[in-house]
């Protein structure tokens, strides 16, 4: 049976820990051996929305595992612009490749692609819904920085309403033991009830606040997010909150020495560049872990031996 990676909701705590283990195995494998794992295999990369890190890290991951990549980075120059349905695009592309990575502005697009595809499908973001490989790389980053995920105190900061990254990460972390959360956001960008509701049953402690200062002094991880202009139906609302949180050196003065700052990137104003050189900054290594994690994901879904 083919394997897909569509939603964090499909993964149990054991699945999550298995993926973290896969990342470790990639790191423990030499580049020469890695290049043989998916040799001769082709990855179809279908990006209907712009992306830098996700697309490039998937492509780099496939190349490092010895495979090759085909695809598009915008739908404008494809048959989609002529009105082709997603199902028809998938039926076509699956003829050419061994797995498909898809990013699409509509929620549920990756699930639909997986339903019609005979090759594995990986969700690289479907509208405001899911971005499971980002979540896995975030978990993998935490595992590498702290040696564990269990028991961490994590502040999620910024756009908690529209950020799919934050929603998925919260649901995934809630499955680990004793993870405690602080939700830091303006009132208008609070974590939606339906997201909290969906994690019901997990043993989690959640404190909601508007104070970033308080979160910095009492957390192991501050996970910053960009306030995403493109998700706001009303531009006036965006202007009101766009600079709500800005992390700079001064704000980190009272931070515990071990505090790490993560960000899914791209950033705009929410983290000052002066933070980059502090020992707290971990967002660029996080992007690096993304490639390692995706190497593991590709090997796993394509049946490559690591």
């Amino acid at each position: 049976m083919k394997r897909d990676l569509i939603s964090i909701e499909d993964l149990s705590e054991k699945h999550l820990r298995d993926y973290l283990e896969l990342g470790k195995r990639v790191e423990g494998t030499s580049p020469e051996v890695c290049r043989k794992v998916l040799a001769g295999r082709i990855l179809g990369v279908l990006f209907y929305e712009p992306s830098t890190r996700t697309r490039l890290s998937f492509e780099a991951a496939m190349l490092r595992m010895g495979g090759q990549v085909i695809g598009f980075s915008e739908a404008l120059n494809t048959s989609v612009a002529k009105g082709e349905s997603l199902a028809d695009t998938i039926h076509t592309v699956e003829q050419y490749c061994d797995a498909i990575v898809i990013r699409h502005p509509r929620e549920g697009a990756a699930r639909l692609a997986a339903e019609v595809s005979r090759v594995p499908v990986i969700n690289a973001g479907d509208g405001a819904n899911q971005h499971p490989t980002q979540t896995l790389l975030d978990l993998y980053t935490l595992q590498n920085l702290f040696g564990r995920v269990d028991g961490l105190r994590i502040a999620l900061v910024g756009d908690l309403k529209y950020s799919r990254t934050v929603h998925s990460l919260f649901h995934a972390l809630a499955r680990f033991k004793d993870v405690r959360f602080r939700f830091v956001s303006p009132e208008t960008l609070k974590m939606p009830e339906y997201v909290i509701e969906a994690s019901e049953g997990a043993t989690t402690e959640v404190i909601e606040t508007t104070s970033l200062e308080e979160a910095i002094s009492d957390s192991d991880v501050v996970y910053m997010t960009r306030i995403q202009r493109e998700r706001f139906p009303d531009p006036v609302e965006y202007e009101k909150v766009k600079d709500a949180y800005r992390l700079d050196r001064a704000a980190l003065q009272n931070a515990p020495a071990h505090l790490k700052v993560l960000h899914p990137l791209p950033r705009v104003n929410e983290i000052a560049t002066e933070v980059d050189s502090t020992p707290h900054a971990a967002y660029f290594p996080q992007a690096g872990y993304g490639m390692t994690m995706r190497q593991g994901i590709l090997a796993h879904l394509l049946g490559g031996k690591l």
């Binding site: 349905s85 199902a87 509509r106 697009a109 639909l112 509208g127």
Partner: peptide, 10 residues
């Protein structure tokens, strides 16, 4: 925004 409202015959 759900794909099921945009795709034919889903």
């Amino acid at each position: 925004g759900c794909i099921t409202n945009h795709e034919r015959c889903v």
